[in-house]
C-alpha cells in the first residue's frame, strides 16, 4: 500500500502503449514518457482477424495430426 501511495506523491513516469497522441500530450506537459508502438492484431480489422484465426486453427490441426 505504501508503494501505491508513493505513486501519487512522486513524479509520474509513463509507458504509453498504443495511441501516440496520448504520448504527445504527456510530453507536451513535461511528463517523462516512452511510447510503445502497439495496435490490435490485424489492425483491428475483424475480417482479416477471422481469416488469420482460420489459418491458426488449421495449423493446430496439422500439428496435432503429426504428434
Amino acid at each position: 500500500m505504501a508503494s501505491l501511495n508513493n505513486l501519487f506523491t512522486s513524479p509520474v513516469k509513463v509507458i504509453n502503449v498504443g495511441l501516440a497522441s496520448f504520448f504527445a500530450d504527456l510530453k507536451s506537459q513535461g511528463v517523462t514518457a516512452v511510447q510503445v508502438d502497439w495496435q490490435p492484431p490485424a489492425g483491428g480489422n475483424a475480417k482479416v482477424a477471422a481469416l488469420l484465426d482460420r489459418v491458426r486453427r488449421w495449423q493446430t490441426l496439422v500439428r496435432a495430426g503429426k504428434e
Binding site: K47, V48, L51, L52, R54, V55, R57, W58
Partner: peptide, 16 residues
C-alpha cells in the same frame, strides 16, 4: 495482402 490472405484461406484451410 487482404485479398491474398482470403485466397490463401480459401485454397488451404478446412471449411469451418
Amino acid at each position: 495482402f487482404e485479398d491474398a490472405l482470403a485466397a490463401y484461406v480459401e485454397t488451404y484451410c478446412p471449411k469451418d
